[in-house]
Design a binder for these strands. Structure first.
Lengths: 295, 295
DNA sequence: CGTGATTACGGTTGACGTAATCATA
DNA sequence: TATGATTACGTCAACCGTAATCACG
């Protein structure tokens, strides 16, 4: 089981083609074919069907393992690179609803203390943050999501990274102002079962909510963007209800937020970093943590 | 980053010697030296100090990653091997206090339904079970431990394996019969802070208890064996108190179990298996799960 | 037939082992 | 000085690319 072969398998499974996988990897089609064949020989079974190129059950499973192995190798090499050189610049990834206030205040305090430090912030979808950390493109990531009050956010690559809880906010059901349900002091998800529903996976991963809503729920309207203002306008226009952290609905007059009852869910943002194990910590991380402790 | 090199690094770190690492791996000393050197060149930093051979901070961290990567590769190859051949025999690992009753009943029912199936059971320390599963030496493992009522057992290799909750029992404080504290209806851990304490890591991993007992606790007496009878005799002889599942103290007349209060902890056993994703399930696993659902 | 995967084959690379060298307890 | 890691170097395996072949749409 060579790393190279696993990388080839993963690329082939993802691309659905030896040719384009080879292009991606910088090999010839022939080489990739041999690499996959070598895996198949070693394991004694077919991993991808050819013409059309489609993974077998075994191949699909091995590809999952391969993805995790390669991710960990990336994380390892990023971590080790960080052992070498102390950071002169700090890059932070930020998912759309990840308490930007917190980061803003932290950055201000960092700027005042060490003005020569280069700081850059990059906005990303939550699930992308792990890859950025793994590849070393960012030093830390503030990501957010919906979970139970004492559950961690479960992101795919967790365990490799350290995640620290940084902020937590109650969830509200965002409704068009004047909506009949908005009068209630609290709303349970069951009440909304038949209401139209807006889902914005790029803005806020609602993994936990999927589990809470039964099969009886309507197919939600999908908003593929990551812009909060647009989503609020859609809600305000009566297209549907959305689940958001309470502070997110403050800005828009056409939308009201009704507290959620029943479903024990919260909005949380966590700070993800590579495990650097002491030794020369990142000033931005320190500042964010100091703030979150005070809040 | 080659798998071979990572394996070499890990062996060197574990053995504290290039020579014996090489013997373990079936290489010459020279080869291992070159493999580690190759890693060091690639990462641009020293991973192990020589004379004496000791990992640097970076090396230690990389070795941790390496261990996880190699474990996952083992799991992958075991899983894939299982895709090939349907099992004619079933091997189960069992940690010392992992509800043996459950397995016994399950095995009886399996024997009656398919008498031609070879079944073997192997007793192991809980932490060893993962390696056995990964190497393919066993098909399933019943492991137990102490955690919170809704927390999973956190074992190092989890995430690679599927773990299913199979049984749960209240924890009791095992005390010498006639012990002054035994008269109480319930005992909190705080009350026992100054009492002598018996810890048996091979018998029952008390990971969670470590967190619950403050620094003020006495250094516990260590019992290195994995034999419940012996531990109970030690308790009965007044050597100290021990934390055990309630059914474990039934057998011995010199010991009583007092229910635990305050600390929200339980004893749980979980069934660990490779992810086989449907397709030809293991009859023993099915039987154990069927039983646990009934209980 | 044409696109795309496999197989055949040669060149080059690089990994391991032997043996000599070096360093440290 | 002896044990044990590194370095030098030759050999051999294997990996990749080119090119021919094969198979499926």
């Amino acid at each position: 089981m060579e790393v190279r072969d696993l990388r080839a398998l993963l690329a082939v499974v993802r691309c659905g083609s030896f040719t384009v996988a080879a292009r991606q990897l910088g090999f010839t089609q022939s080489a990739v074919s041999q690499q996959v064949a070598s895996l198949e020989a070693e394991l004694g079974q077919l991993l991808v069907e050819r013409r059309p190129v489609r993974p077998t059950a075994a191949g699909r499973r091995l590809a999952e393992h391969a993805a995790q192995v390669l991710l960990r190798l990336d994380v390892a090499s990023s971590e080790l690179a960080r052992f070498r050189q102390r950071p002169g610049a700090v890059k932070v990834a930020l998912s759309p609803l990840a308490s930007p206030q917190l980061l803003a205040v932290a950055l201000r305090s960092v700027r005042s203390q060490s003005p020569d430090l280069k700081v850059s912030v990059k906005s990303v979808v939550a699930t992308e943050a792990i890859n950025l950390l793994a590849s070393g493109a960012v030093d830390a990531a503030l990501v957010d999501g919906i979970t139970g009050p004492s559950e961690p956010l479960h992101l795919s690559g967790t365990g490799l990274l350290t995640s620290r809880w940084v902020a937590q906010a109650p969830l509200v059901v965002a409704l068009q102002r004047g909506h009949p349900l908005a009068a209630r002091p609290e709303i349970s998800l069951e009440v909304l079962a038949d209401a139209p529903w807006l889902v914005a996976p790029a803005l806020l991963e609602g993994g936990a909510t999927r589990r809470h809503q039964g099969a009886s729920w309507k197919e939600p309207v999908l908003y593929e963007g990551a812009d909060l203002g647009t989503l609020l306008k859609l809600v305000g226009a009566g297209l549907g209800a959305a689940l958001l952290p309470d502070w997110a609905v403050e800005g828009d007059d056409s939308v009201t937020g009704a507290p959620l009852s029943g479903a024990r869910l919260v909005h949380r943002t966590e700070l993800l970093t590579l495990r650097t194990d002491g030794a020369g910590q990142n000033p931005v991380i320190e500042a964010v943590l100091a703030l979150s402790r005070r809040v």
